[in-house]
Nucleic acid binder design. Structure first.
Length: 181
DNA sequence: GGGTTGATGTTC
DNA sequence: AACATCAACCCG
């Protein structure tokens, strides 16, 4: 999914906080058994009634919120999971939300980043394209090297390289899978 | 450093 | 019952 790849390197702004997107995962609305649309009518309805750029937020493992963006209008519709960002602005606030000091522990995972940015159900279905304080800002003049790997969190459909990370970023949720030996 | 486990809400 | 996670804990 090109959109998932293109989000890497943009700045995710969330109120007083922000960070550079360093890791995403693409889920296709159609034919992807790892996508919520595959099993959930409610998610299919969400896709139907919303435009591209809408936030899709859900609660997972009874513990963590997950931030996704609806993508439409290209060859295929999808939901892009934001998995990690490199903290930029609002470090003190993020540390407070996370209860941790280390920079690399603030947003290096989908559940960590939502906690750091205080993202939850309130933000479900908001339009990320309309509000400059909640959404993705392009960063011009930036040379972004993106690596594609199989998705990390899901068991299903493991064979597609739909996890995108900023090359050699120390802020991803898990190191990029390295070829052993 | 690596493996294991418990917490826990929403959906189907 | 499954699940797109995390941190605390053990072991070494």
């Amino acid at each position: 999914m090109e959109c998932a790849e293109n989000l890497v390197g943009t700045e995710l702004v969330w109120g007083k906080c922000s960070g550079i997107v360093v890791e995403t995962e693409a889920y296709l609305v159609k034919g992807d058994e790892a996508c919520h649309t595959f099993m959930r009518p409610s998610t299919r309805a969400f896709v139907e009634r919303n435009e591209a750029g809408t936030a899709y937020i859900y609660f997972n493992y009874g513990v963590h919120w997950m931030l996704n963006v609806l993508v439409k209008g290209g060859p295929r519709d999808g939901l892009i999971l934001i998995r990690a960002i490199e903290p930029q602005r609002g470090l003190a606030l993020m540390r407070k939300h996370r209860g941790r000091e280390e920079l690399r522990q603030l947003c290096s995972g989908p559940g960590k980043l939502t906690q750091a940015l205080a993202i939850d159900k309130r933000h479900h279905e908001i339009d990320l394209a309309a509000d400059p304080t909640h959404g993705f800002h392009p960063r011009p003049n930036d040379d972004v090297k993106v690596v594609a790997d199989p998705r990390s969190g899901t068991i299903r459909a493991k064979d597609f390289p739909w996890r995108f990370t900023l090359k050699e970023s120390p802020f991803v949720s898990r190191p990029v899978q390295r070829r052993h030996r």
